[in-house]
Amino acid sequence: MAADLTLYTNPMSRGRIARWMLEEVGAPYETVVLDYGTTMKNDAYRAINPMMKVPAIVHQGMVVTEVAAICAYLADAFPQAGLAPAPAERADYYRWLFFGAGPLEAAITNRSMGVEPDARQQQMAGYGTLELTAGTLESMLKDRDYIAGNRFSAADVYVGSSLMWYTGFGLLPKSAPFMAYIARIADRPAHRRASEIDDALMPAKADAG
Results as ranks from 00 to 15, higher is better:
33 V>W: 07
209 G>W: 03
19 R>S: 00
75 A>K: 01
200 A>I: 14
119 A>Y: 08
93 Y>S: 00
168 G>K: 11
54 V>K: 05
6 T>N: 07
12 M>Y: 07
180 A>N: 12
144 R>E: 05
24 E>M: 04
122 Q>C: 15
193 R>W: 06
49 N>R: 02
167 T>R: 11
34 L>H: 02
104 L>G: 01
24 E>V: 07
90 R>G: 05
98 F>L: 12
18 A>N: 08
31 T>E: 10
80 Q>S: 15
195 S>Y: 05
95 R>F: 06
29 Y>D: 12
65 T>P: 10
18 A>W: 00
28 P>D: 09
22 L>T: 04
4 D>L: 09
17 I>Q: 01
187 D>W: 12
12 M>T: 11
28 P>G: 11
1 M>I: 13
41 K>I: 11
45 Y>E: 03
102 G>V: 09
152 F>D: 03
144 R>G: 03
139 S>K: 14
24 E>P: 02
145 D>K: 14
5 L>Q: 07
195 S>R: 14
39 T>H: 14
64 V>N: 10
51 M>S: 14
112 S>Y: 11
166 Y>R: 12
159 V>C: 06
45 Y>K: 06
3 A>R: 11
116 E>Y: 05
203 P>H: 06
152 F>S: 03
93 Y>I: 01
201 L>P: 10
131 E>A: 13
154 A>D: 02
96 W>L: 13
202 M>A: 13
105 E>V: 13
143 D>Y: 11
1 M>W: 03
37 G>F: 10
35 D>R: 14
169 F>Y: 15
197 I>S: 06
60 Q>D: 15
165 W>V: 15
29 Y>V: 07
199 D>G: 01
23 E>G: 03
3 A>Q: 10
171 L>K: 15
100 G>I: 03
161 S>Y: 00
95 R>Y: 12
49 N>F: 02
111 R>I: 12
